[in-house]
Computed example of a mutant assay.
Amino acid sequence: MDFSADTSGLYRFLAERESAVIAAAISGVHDATDHLLATSRNEAPLKTGTLRITAGKKVTKENGQIYGEVFYSATEEGSSGVRFNYALRVHEMGEYKSPTTPGTRPKFLSRPLRTNERLYQRFINDAIRRALR
């Protein structure tokens, strides 16, 4: 016994909406990175404000993939005169013994990313669903 199904209508439907779906996915990634940027900024130390000022985000589409990036680019000069990545150092510290601002903490970027991972997936999925309607 053979079974067959005509899927040409489905393929036409998907082809017609491909650009809308890609645009929606990009929009969803923007929403997710905006949220992560805001959340992580609130947790980043505020002693001088350097970390929060240098934070940013970027969304790109390359080779059929959509990438969202949140970054902190603070660098400082150490006592030896060598510049180092201050953002990375503060992110990877152990618990702050006396944070200058209550509610700030190390892992200010990775912690909110892990905590909100499902929310960010939902941002992207919901945007794509809307594009398919």
Rank of each mutant, 00 (worst) to 15 (best):
S4Q: 15
A5S: 14
A5F: 15
T7K: 15
G9H: 11
G9V: 04
G9L: 10
L10D: 05
L10M: 10
Y11S: 12
Y11E: 12
Y11K: 09
R12D: 14
L14W: 03
A15P: 00
A15Q: 06
A15R: 06
A15K: 07
E16N: 12
E16F: 02
A20C: 02
A20N: 12
V21M: 15
I22Y: 05
I22R: 13
I22G: 04
A23T: 11
A23C: 08
A24V: 03
A24N: 03
A24C: 02
I26M: 14
S27C: 04
S27Y: 08
S27H: 10
S27L: 04
G28H: 09
G28Q: 11
V29Q: 08
H30A: 03
D31G: 05
D31I: 00
A32N: 03
T33R: 08
T33I: 09
T33K: 09
H35V: 00
H35R: 07
L36V: 00
L36C: 02
L37N: 05
L37E: 11
L37D: 06
A38C: 00
A38L: 09
A38V: 06
T39M: 01
T39F: 00
T39P: 01
T39S: 10
T39W: 00
S40H: 04
S40Q: 09
R41W: 03
R41L: 05
R41S: 10
N42I: 00
E43C: 05
E43R: 13
E43S: 12
E43G: 04
A44H: 01
A44L: 02
P45E: 11
P45Y: 01
P45W: 01
P45L: 04
P45C: 07
L46S: 12
K47S: 05
T48G: 02
G49M: 09
G49N: 11
G49H: 11
T50K: 09
L51A: 06
L51C: 04
I53W: 06
I53L: 08
T54P: 02
T54V: 03
T54K: 12
A55M: 10
K58Y: 03
K58N: 12
K58V: 02
K58A: 08
T60I: 10
T60A: 13
K61S: 13
E62S: 13
